[in-house]
Design a protein around this nucleic acid. Structure first.
Length: 159
DNA sequence: GCCAACGTTGGC
DNA sequence: GCCAACGTTGGC
């Protein structure tokens, strides 16, 4: 069992949206490192910290809940749809040529929304989370691995 | 809105 | 293969 963190802008797709939808394809990831984590690293049943980025004072940045990997990686159809905001002409060209899908995604399912979100500010103050990837300066990955002890610590802080 | 950090692109 | 330019992310 591995642990992950995925980012979403809270006003774009929030943990509340995932709770309503129960399950969704995590489409729109257009970064190779993030894609590789989904394609090669994620396994069905892995647990995910659901992080809201780009917060505001009213809705601060932080971890707002837990999700679960529901499927192996599959092609991200939004990359092939010219009308989609995440359309990628290069990916569409590759698909026509019968190459491996350029962009892939997993399905994620709702597990829990925290009664008390673990805000970025609180995570930074917690010495046990000092080495956590999401807290490192300059990192911008929207899909990243999380160490088991960091995952458990975030859960502790959410109670 | 600003800006630092980073990934990607493209000229050479 | 180098590197400058550019676009994007995301914290503040």
């Amino acid at each position: 069992m591995k642990y992950w963190l995925i980012k979403s802008e809270g006003d774009c797709y929030s943990i509340g949206d995932l709770k309503r939808d129960k399950r969704t394809a995590w489409t729109g990831i257009r970064n190779f490192t993030a894609r590789n984590f989904m394609r090669d690293g994620m396994k069905k049943g892995d647990l995910i910290l659901f992080y809201h980025s780009n917060g505001t004072p009213a809705a601060p940045t932080g971890v707002y809940g837990v999700a679960k990997v529901m499927s192996a990686a599959h092609i991200d159809e939004t990359a092939l749809d010219p009308k989609d905001e995440h359309y990628d002409p290069t990916a569409a060209k590759y698909a026509q040529e019968g190459k491996e899908p350029m962009w892939m995604c997993v399905d994620v399912g709702f597990v829990a929304a925290f009664a008390h979100p673990v805000l970025l500010e609180a995570m930074k103050r917690d010495s046990k989370l000092a080495a956590m990837l999401v807290l490192q300066r300059g990192q911008r990955l929207s899909v990243m691995p999380v160490a088991g002890h960091h995952f458990r610590r975030v859960l502790e802080l959410s109670t």
